[in-house]
């Protein structure tokens, strides 16, 4: 499709790069004018780095697009494979980097560790020191994962935090908060919902939400709803 096909409604925001002097008042309302000091600092640093040949504008755009192409669908594919292929599940638990590599994912320089949730053990991941997150598998982290509230409270009151996400677990299930403090990145394998025996791998992947791979929620049930015990 043409990137400048204006017959569709204007839901994309990439209408730029036209000749200088083009009147943008019609087509550019969705690009927010910078207002904060740090947004001006971003412009200054970026323009200087481009002028000096350290980075190019094309590279920055490509990098933005590369990250936008990474999403929780990646992690969901891995989980669905682990649910349907027991040998794969065991390889994933034994060597996360190698097993996600089989499906075309690369987690460079870091150790990828898959954590399997069971009826008696529920993992939830936090980074209390910064905001470590398995971006190659889940994309850019949600704002709440990086928030002061999530980072501070999760290790102290995990069940209160889970409740805010609509997740309540029996006291017989050990809630294990995993603080991602070092060179490991964690992918939670949520429990496979009941009644999903006949589903294809693709249909199963659709039940694996981002939050279920962080551990603040469970996978959706077979009808696509939140799986509340």
């Amino acid at each position: 499709m043409s990137p400048h096909d204006h017959t569709d409604d204007h839901t994309h925001d990439h209408h730029h790069g036209d000749a200088a002097g083009h009147d943008h008042t019609t087509f550019q309302p969705d690009i927010k004018e910078p207002s904060e000091d740090w947004e001006f600092l971003e412009i200054a640093l970026r323009e200087l780095l481009i002028e000096k040949g350290v980075l190019s504008a094309r590279e920055i755009q490509d990098e933005i697009e590369a990250w936008e192409n990474k999403s929780p669908e990646g992690g969901a594919r891995i989980v669905a494979r682990a649910w349907t292929d027991d040998a794969y599940r065991q390889r994933l638990l034994a060597d996360g980097n190698a097993a996600v590599g089989e499906l075309g994912f690369t987690v460079e320089a870091l150790k990828l560790v898959a954590l399997e949730n069971t009826e008696t053990l529920h993992h939830m991941v936090v980074c209390t020191l910064c905001s470590c997150y398995p971006r190659p598998l889940l994309g850019v982290p949600p704002l709440w994962y990086k928030s002061r509230e999530y980072r501070s409270r999760t290790v102290r009151e995990p069940r209160a935090v889970l409740k805010e996400f609509g997740t309540e677990l029996p006291v017989t299930t050990e809630v294990r908060v995993v603080d991602s403090t070092a060179d490991c990145r964690y992918l939670v394998i949520p429990r496979r919902p009941e009644g999903t025996e006949g589903l294809s791998e693709t249909a199963l992947a659709a039940l694996v939400s981002r939050d279920s791979m962080i551990g603040t929620a469970e996978a959706f049930s077979s009808d696509g709803k939140r799986n509340i015990l």
């Binding site: 290790v155 102290r156 009151e157 995990p158 069940r159 209160a160 409740k163 006291v171 017989t172 050990e174 809630v175 294990r176 908060v177 995993v178 603080d179 991602s180 403090t181 070092a182 060179d183 490991c184």
Partner: peptide, 17 residues
Amino acid sequence: GVEDGAYAPGDTVAADI
């Protein structure tokens, strides 16, 4: 923690050290 529902008796925290 246990009384106010912050965590249950068997709950744990793991960290990389």
